[in-house]
Write a protein that binds this DNA or RNA. Structure first.
Lengths: 144, 144
DNA sequence: TGTATAATCTACCAACATAGTAGGAATTGT
DNA sequence: ACAATTCCTACTATGTTGGTAGATTATACA
């Protein structure tokens, strides 16, 4: 149960966009450099995030990407679903019809518990929360 | 973030072994039939569970598999680790040295939270718990 | 002692997902 | 016009998953 780089890089990228605010766009090149991700690969990830409506792009010179919505309206569970492709451990957890034993299956119960635990965490965090956390970290580093 | 069949089938198999008790062995063929898993594939899974010390095998005629330990001493987190290969969302969560930004990384914090949530659930459940749950289900089906 | 029944071991394989790379076209600011 | 960007299409290497196949070894039982 490892996360794909798609999800890991994607999250880091959108966090950086959130930190950058919604005044000026941030270029793929800049994000790729600071996050040490291949420009070409990051392009794909941004396309995913864009079609899901989390970020918007500005083409051409001085273009780049910005959050499409306010960071406190973007929950990590949404971003995760879009990148990783839905938080589902097993299909039968979502859809009982998937397996005829589903109703009585204790294994299914376990995966349902796990899935809920993951979802609960991710639903409780917004991008704004992460921006705030990052700020706190920086402040404590400078020992203010 | 989907579970592999290795983990799903493996868990179902070991649950069935737990339900079967530790008096008589259960054959791969029998488990494969009731769980609708390929015999040959299940062989592999049992090998994994055996080398991890969860089950022991009896070779030859009338042989089969049994739990190697008492079902209340086997936590799902252990079984999961053995089948899925450790509950780790990202390497840096376990080992800070993995990424130099790890200390300050808010993304890492998120994955650490998620990972802990998963672990907490799996550590809180033993095979005995599942045997009990299954019994309860059967009883309620018969409307006792 | 022979035979059936099991686990065990070794090897192979097809299909799919992942994690990219490459090159060019379209768009926009200066 | 030109440079800086995003956008689009296509390709690819590698690893993982989910198996299959066949021979070998161990054991119970008659």
């Amino acid at each position: 149960m490892k996360l794909s780089t798609r999800t890991r890089y994607g999250l880091r990228a959108i966090i950086e966009l959130a930190e950058n605010g919604r005044e000026a766009p941030l270029q793929i090149k800049a994000i790729a450099r600071s996050q040490e991700i291949s420009v070409k690969y990051l392009e794909q990830l941004m396309t995913i995030l864009r079609s899901a409506g989390f970020v918007r792009s500005i083409r051409g010179s001085k273009g780049g990407y910005m959050l499409a919505r306010s960071p406190n309206q973007i929950k990590l569970s949404d971003v995760f679903d879009c990148l990783e492709g839905h938080v589902t451990t097993v299909e039968c957890v979502e859809d009982t019809k998937f397996c005829e034993r589903a109703e009585d299956c204790v294994a299914r119960q376990v995966w349902a518990q796990v899935q809920k635990a993951i979802k609960d965490v991710l639903q409780s965090i917004t991008l704004q929360d992460l921006v705030d956390r990052a700020k706190d970290k920086k402040m404590s580093n400078y020992q203010i």
